[in-house]
Amino acid sequence: MNVKAFLAAVLLAAPAGAQGFAGLGADAQGFAVPQPGQPLAFPQDHGAHPEYRIEWWYLTATLTGPDGTDYGAQWTLFRSALAPEAGTGWESPQLWLGHAALTTPDAHHVAERLGRGGIGQAGVVAAPFEAWIDNWQMVSRAAGGADALDAIQVTASGTDFAYDLALQATGPLVAQGDQGYSVKSAAGQASYYYSQPFYQVTGSITDQGRVIPVTGKAWLDREWSSQPLAADQTGWDWFSLMFDDGARLMGFRLRDTGEGYTSATWIAADGTPRPMPPGALRVTPLREVPVAGRDVPVVWRVELPAMGLDVTTTPLNEQAWMDTLVPYWEGPITISGTHAGRGYLEMTGY
């Protein structure tokens, strides 16, 4: 087994075997396990939690250029621990993986970086907040007194793209699930999970050497866990929807050998979260297209009857395939139906 495939399997979901997402369904032995009723604490929880197996800083942005063209940008830093300790130098068991993507109507640029913790190549510090791998950064620009994530600067680049975005939050941090305790299966697997879904974005993207000023909205997810999935779960379909009226919806379906497990949090325009019970969200694939040699559902019907929501999502670019060590689909979508807006869709395990 190649080291990177091994690493990627630890960090991300791979098509399932008996072990769920190759490793994500493994025992949490030695690692800390999320417990309900433990409130999140900031700024510490913006930083890394080395005693947990896995963690990510996950930003998606829907952008628009001066000519009205839509774009999408993704900036992700994964942390994966081989052992539940920070460690020092090269012997640190903390490994880091960065994904950056820029989606245009006719292209999807992807870059990937790996790094070792302990030597300074990659890491996250809570205060003053900075998350980085190589020359990709997410740095706090918040004024003193404000939460560090209220204003951040995000940069990344690949061989044929780059972006530099300034993000300003217009709403509060939102704890997902039960005050940040997010259950991921009927058997009780869970993670800590909070979001900042209210960013306004200004900045520029570089698409094959062409610099384009952009504006838009962005959503940051923070999640850490040690065993987030049940052994029989094979992948997920995850939606972050930003409606024109200011409300937000985070919803996902975890696929397994049975009916699957859905979870959702409705976020009012003022940031008040309203966790939905399991099964309240219904997602139905409407159209599959061949992507990278497999059939991937790119158009979805998303229903949340409790909120009167019944929408269809269509992708900006159906071929938003993340051709990374463990591949997955991640791209901007447009929402139509009872609600309108834009968002991001992530699908793993196809």
Partner: peptide
């Protein structure tokens, strides 16, 4: 530059730690 298949069975941790 990859020369060796790592991580068979025991993975990366024993490789990078003493």
């Amino acid at each position: 530059a990859q020369q060796v298949e790592f991580g068979q069975g025991d993975g990366l941790l024993p490789f990078i730690t003493a």
